[in-house]
Simulated assay, not measured.
Amino acid sequence: MPWPLGALILLLTVIGMEGFAYAAHRWLMHGPGWFLHASHHRARPGNWEWNDLYAAIFAVPSIVLLLGGLQWGWWPGCAWIGAGIAAYGAIYFGFHDVIVHQRIPTRYLPKSRYMKRIVQAHRLHHVVETKEGNVSFGFLVAPRPESLKAELKRRSRAGVRAPKTTGADASTRP
């Protein structure tokens, strides 16, 4: 297969993965897969959370497609699709785990309007700690934060976590 065609397949796979990721996050992780994903909406006591298993689960099709396309005699495009899934996973890790959740310490501060928008949208997703009532399920494409805030307000802030209180605030509460 000519490499320009393979590169196009890879690029289209990365783009398509955003739709897959939205659907998986919205209807799988906030649906029957909540038993793993719930750990991601709570404070993480250590380096790992149950939600991290999704990275391993979603890596399996990428690995199988890469092996199929490169070693098992499948259509060569399978390798490019597998590489596109892996590329999306790397982008996701960089954005989600490094930039937003800072699981690897960095001094990066979003400066562009795009980066500020997707970081804020993801943070608004995390103000809801329940399975239902969330907003913004995409990772690289997100609605404007103003519309997400309005939607949370329209839902009467159902499931929105209480603000953190300091020790002084806690001692003055009844």
Rank of each mutant, 00 (worst) to 15 (best):
L70S: 14
K111N: 15
R117Q: 10
R117L: 08
F95H: 13
R117K: 12
A87K: 12
P105M: 06
A79I: 12
A90G: 10
I104P: 15
Q71E: 13
V98M: 13
V98E: 06
P110T: 05
I81Y: 08
A79W: 11
I81Q: 02
T106R: 11
K116P: 01
H101W: 07
Q102A: 13
Q71W: 14
G82H: 00
I99K: 01
Q71R: 14
A83D: 09
T106L: 05
V119Q: 00
R123D: 03
I63H: 09
Y88G: 06
C78I: 02
W80G: 04
D97C: 09
I81L: 13
L66C: 15
Q102D: 06
A79Q: 12
H126E: 02
W72A: 01
V100N: 00
R107L: 11
V119H: 03
A121M: 03
C78A: 15
C78M: 10
L67G: 15
R103W: 08
Y114D: 05
C78K: 02
L109Q: 09
R113A: 14
R113S: 09
R107H: 08
V100S: 05
V64G: 03
Y92P: 01
I91M: 07
L67C: 15
A90R: 11
G89I: 04
Q102P: 00
I99E: 01
I118P: 01
G73W: 02
L70H: 10
C78D: 03
W75H: 09
I63Y: 12
T106C: 11
Y92V: 04
I63V: 15
W74Q: 11
H122S: 01
K111I: 11
G84R: 02
W74V: 09
H125Y: 03
L65M: 14
A79V: 13
G77I: 00
A86H: 00
V100K: 04
G84L: 03
W75E: 03
Y108R: 03
Y92I: 01
G89K: 00
Q71Y: 11
Q102R: 12
G94N: 11
